[in-house]
Design a protein around this nucleic acid. Sequence first.
DNA 1: GCAAAAGTGTTAGGAGTACACCCATGC
DNA 2: GCATGGGTGTACTCCTAACACTTTTGC
Lengths: 217, 217
Amino acid sequence: MEVNNTKYKHQGIHVIASIFTIDKGILKVLLIKRKNKPFQGSWALTGGALYNDEDLEDGLRREIYEKTGLKNIELKLSNVFGKKDRSPVMRMVAITYIGMVDITKVKITTNTLKTSDAIWCPINEIPLLAYDHNEIIKDAITNLKELVLETNILKVFFPQGFTLPELQKIYEEILGKKLDRRNFRKKIISSKNIISTEQEENFEGKKKAKIYKFIEG
Amino acid sequence: MEVNNTKYKHQGIHVIASIFTIDKGILKVLLIKRKNKPFQGSWALTGGALYNDEDLEDGLRREIYEKTGLKNIELKLSNVFGKKDRSPVMRMVAITYIGMVDITKVKITTNTLKTSDAIWCPINEIPLLAYDHNEIIKDAITNLKELVLETNILKVFFPQGFTLPELQKIYEEILGKKLDRRNFRKKIISSKNIISTEQEENFEGKKKAKIYKFIEG
DNA sequence: GCAAAAGTGTTAGGAGTACACCCATGC
DNA sequence: GCATGGGTGTACTCCTAACACTTTTGC
């Protein structure tokens, strides 16, 4: 391994996050406007070049913090994007992650050293993005659908518990289809990761709904 | 993106393959002995540093060819390993893949510019390897079990078709457990990717067994 | 004829899906 | 009292898993 071999000199790693939220029932992804070259002025996903002294997720957390002010996001590995020409500056391989945040509990910094704006963009209104970020988001949405079914990724919305109708709305928005209420209840209630409480709460209807909670983990 | 920023100077990408085979009924992985530093003289998985002018899989195919002589292997993405200290030379992120070859149809070059030996090593006899390759293999074996159930990865053993008992033996070896013969038949025969032929063949028993084939794709 | 392996069918449980009516509440 | 949304049960299908006897053939 020769550090200066020109065949693999000037390579780097992008760590990139598709950070999603549900805003008034709509699935949105966090985009930032780039202040610097390349793709100056373009919209892009959060993320950037990994430093040598940090692990992948730590580097991604740093990038997310620098570009949006967001902290403490749970991240799930999504995929790898490594086409040789995906960056115009130098050879970069992208490791992509998925995150989910509650838009009502975070404040996005819209102007940083590296960004001049930030928006939550509905996933069917995504503009042309920097690099291969359009492809990355599309892939992330596919993987997000699996994560919703197989992990507790939606827990972030419900630290105090949730009613089944409100959880179902989020499922339906992310999966892009309507679900049967009775079957949804059966599935959720029989899940090992979810318990019912004695509390009730109004959601959209007139009748109160029972509150359920995600268990730790 | 400044190419010479010291924070991310001297980074690279490892593309690494856990290449498996079934040899006399035993699941084995291909290991090479390194001729060069770092880890000179250590056993390791096949793979190496990606060049700037090649896509990830192309780079991996080149590395596999250079270190073993193997060509035309089907590769499946397995995982990403990116701990900051996983390489002693410089910061390397590893993209790992899984491959499967028919040991009876390939010849491994045991002495190359970069290797001084190569062995097919039973997966429960794996020695201490270079880098984090032990961890990579362990993870690859986990992912291989899913690939066997969900893809045609075993097709490589049976270009002319297979009998159900011989396919079942391979399933059992890879999954590490015995399967019920009747249930296995039902599952395989009902698979869309497999068709039966009119031929029969002796496998281990005295009675002839019907031959099945994987369909294209 | 017997050993060795191939071939075969039924049952039970769990998961998913489809589907219609009553309940509580606010107005 | 009626509109709105919450809560509930049953039947069908499909998949998985458990389980034992018969058939073919080489010796």
